[in-house]
Amino acid sequence: MAPLEIDETSLAASPIERRNSLEKHLLTRPDRQDLKERHILLDTDVAPSLQAARQELARQRATDTLKKQLEHRPEREQLVERNILPATNAAPALQANARELEKHMLADNLDHKIQKRPQPEDLISQGILNEEEDPRKLSV
């Protein structure tokens, strides 16, 4: 779209000059589809006197639909049960840090339990494992 030009044709100019100026501007004016895309004209087949009412009805319908969807929205507890929302009450800015801390605490707990597990020879002497089930022999 070309930038808008200001018609500086003098009113005292001859009628032919004014007509040529008008024709020139009519040739460069935007078409109807361009005006609809730029939301200058409404894209509707409704009479202009009814366009405002139609727009208001469309806005009201969207509002009603949104209200109805919000009424049927599941509660926070249901979303937590379905693992959609985290069970934490931390602020959203802190939730990533809380998850990271929880992951590290779980890893530390697992390391601690692995360090305290009994040795294979203790399990064999207690009759929990057979000699054939000794993990040290299986990995070799």
Rank of each mutant, 00 (worst) to 15 (best):
A2Q: 13
L4F: 13
I6M: 05
D7K: 00
T9D: 09
T9Y: 01
S10Q: 08
S10W: 11
S10T: 02
S10L: 10
S14L: 05
S14K: 09
P15V: 01
P15C: 00
R18C: 03
R18H: 09
R18W: 04
N20H: 11
S21E: 07
L22A: 08
E23T: 09
E23W: 12
K24C: 04
L26I: 13
L26S: 00
L26Q: 10
L27Y: 01
L27T: 02
R29F: 15
P30E: 03
D31N: 15
D31I: 06
R32I: 07
R32Q: 09
R32V: 04
R32K: 10
Q33G: 05
D34R: 15
D34A: 15
D34Q: 15
L35A: 06
L35M: 06
K36H: 00
E37M: 02
E37Q: 08
H39V: 01
L41K: 05
L41C: 02
L42C: 14
D43N: 09
D43W: 01
D43A: 03
A47N: 10
P48G: 04
S49C: 06
Q51T: 10
A52T: 07
A53V: 11
R54I: 14
Q55L: 05
E56N: 07
L57W: 08
L57E: 11
A58M: 11
R59H: 01
A62R: 13
A62F: 00
A62C: 05
D64H: 12
D64S: 08
D64C: 09
T65D: 12
L66H: 10
K67S: 14
K67H: 14
K67F: 14
K68W: 09
K68C: 07
K68E: 12
Q69V: 09
L70P: 08
R73F: 04
R73S: 15
R73M: 12
P74G: 04
P74I: 15
E75L: 15
E75P: 09
E75D: 14
E77Y: 06
E77V: 03
E77G: 02
E77R: 04
Q78I: 14
L79G: 01
R82V: 02
N83E: 11
I84N: 01
L85F: 07
P86D: 05
P86W: 00
P86Q: 02
A90P: 04
A91M: 03
P92I: 03
P92S: 02
A93S: 09
A93W: 06
L94P: 03
A98K: 07
R99K: 12
E102S: 11
H104I: 11
H104F: 10
M105W: 13
L106Y: 07
A107H: 02
D108G: 13
N109T: 12
K113G: 06
K113F: 06
K113H: 05
K113V: 07
P118R: 14
Q119E: 08
Q119Y: 09
P120H: 06
P120R: 05
E121D: 12
Q126V: 00
Q126S: 13
G127N: 02
L129G: 00
E131C: 00
E131S: 11
E132T: 08
E132R: 08
E133Q: 12
E133W: 08
E133M: 10
P135K: 15
R136W: 03
K137L: 15
K137C: 05
K137E: 11
L138M: 13
V140L: 13
